[in-house]
Simulated scan of single mutants.
Amino acid sequence: MSGGAGRVADAARGNWVDGLAPAVTRPYLRLARFDRPIGSWLLLIPCWWSLGIAGMHARALPSLWHIVLFFVGAFAMRGAGCTWNDLVDRDLDGKVERTRSRPIPSGQVTARQAAIFMVVQALLGLAVLLQFNRATILCGFASLAVVAIYPFMKRITYWPQIVLGLAFSWGALMGWPATFARLDAPALVLYAGSICWVIAYDTIYAHQDREDDLLIGIKSTALLFQERTRPMLAVFYAGAVLLIGAAGIMAGGGAIFIVGMLAFAVHLGWQVARIDIDDPAQCLTLFRSNRDAGLILFAAMLLDAAF
């Protein structure tokens, strides 16, 4: 198999899966989105934020072990969640230009093989979760219902991004109990802010598929907002900044955290100013840039906790 054979349409050219991974593993790595890891990063960042505000509250750097565990767990559970999503959506994916090259609709793997792979990834995620304290374990299990229903929401409501926000922001509830063995108000406020962030960036992402989704009856905030996308992004990004900022201040964040929040806010404002909803490539670039925005904020949290 050549490096480009089986490549998924929205994967970056030259990614390591298509170029370096053994051919037999490529369909499974594509199912887990290792050729497009941005989603795993976006799932991970709220986990790290939660550790960050806990560190600011404790006036100490977060546990490196916890940082590593969340990294591994986010990539494992993102892979399991994407495999589940692809199983549920395999018929729809075959009708959309951007997704018909995914492993199941393109015939690279069977549904049964994908289901087995999903279980393997979920077991890896479980092994990671069991390294934490009881409060964190219980919180992690509570996320499964939201993850399970998400793929069906775009058939029902124009707001599937809310359910994605509930799922992708769950890590905001995890780092605090990992540190303190309890769930307190700063983590809950952080969770709300992260949900606003996810709704906005996934609306940008959904504009890539707007025309195909309209044809096959899939709903999204991109279709709901249409020409009102820019002001709606401004509303949700503003909500993210205000709520995440409030969570950090409630946790004891100081000047370094506030500077980081300002940088985060400027980055989100840049996205709102730049977006062209009729340019799918630009929408994808702006969507991916949220990883950088999130990591800038996490770095500020670490510095604030340390100094």
Results as ranks from 00 to 15, higher is better:
A21I: 10
L166D: 12
L190W: 06
R155E: 14
A172G: 05
A111H: 03
E227V: 10
D35L: 07
G269T: 03
S101K: 12
F117K: 02
Y150A: 07
V120H: 00
A238K: 01
L295E: 04
L51V: 10
L51Q: 09
G239V: 06
A206G: 02
R78I: 09
S220R: 05
T83Q: 02
A306F: 12
S169A: 14
F307D: 03
P62G: 07
V259N: 01
G254R: 04
R274L: 09
A167R: 04
R182F: 02
A80G: 09
W270C: 06
G4I: 13
G55I: 04
A200W: 06
W176N: 04
D184F: 07
W270E: 09
R228V: 07
L126N: 03
R228Q: 15
I256A: 02
V189E: 08
G125T: 01
C196H: 13
V198G: 02
I195K: 02
R230Q: 15
I244M: 14
I216Q: 08
L144G: 04
L166V: 15
D91S: 07
V146G: 01
L214H: 13
R30M: 10
S289M: 11
P103I: 01
R98T: 02
F298R: 05
I149M: 04
R134F: 12
I277C: 12
L130I: 08
G269V: 00
S106N: 14
W65A: 13
L284F: 05
G239P: 07
K95F: 06
I296S: 06
V120W: 00
A60G: 02
T203V: 09
F287N: 05
Q131S: 14
C196F: 15
C47L: 06
V259G: 01
L130F: 12
S143C: 05
L42K: 10
L64E: 02
Y201I: 08
L286C: 01
S106I: 10
G294K: 10
F70W: 06
L29Y: 04
R112G: 00
K219D: 04
W84I: 10
L42A: 11
R102K: 14
W270I: 09
A23H: 09
L262A: 15
I249V: 15
H66R: 07
D212H: 08
F236L: 14
A240W: 09
Q226R: 13
Y205M: 13
P105H: 13
F225Q: 01
V8D: 08
G193H: 04
L233C: 09
R230S: 13
S2L: 13
L295Y: 15
Q113P: 10
V272W: 05
M56L: 05
P151T: 11
S106C: 12
P22D: 05
R134I: 12
F236Y: 15
A80D: 08
A135H: 02
A12L: 09
F180Y: 15
I104D: 02
A255V: 07
G294P: 11
W197T: 00
V241K: 00
V241M: 00
L92D: 05
R134S: 11
A60K: 05
A54C: 05
I116R: 10
Q226S: 11
I137V: 15
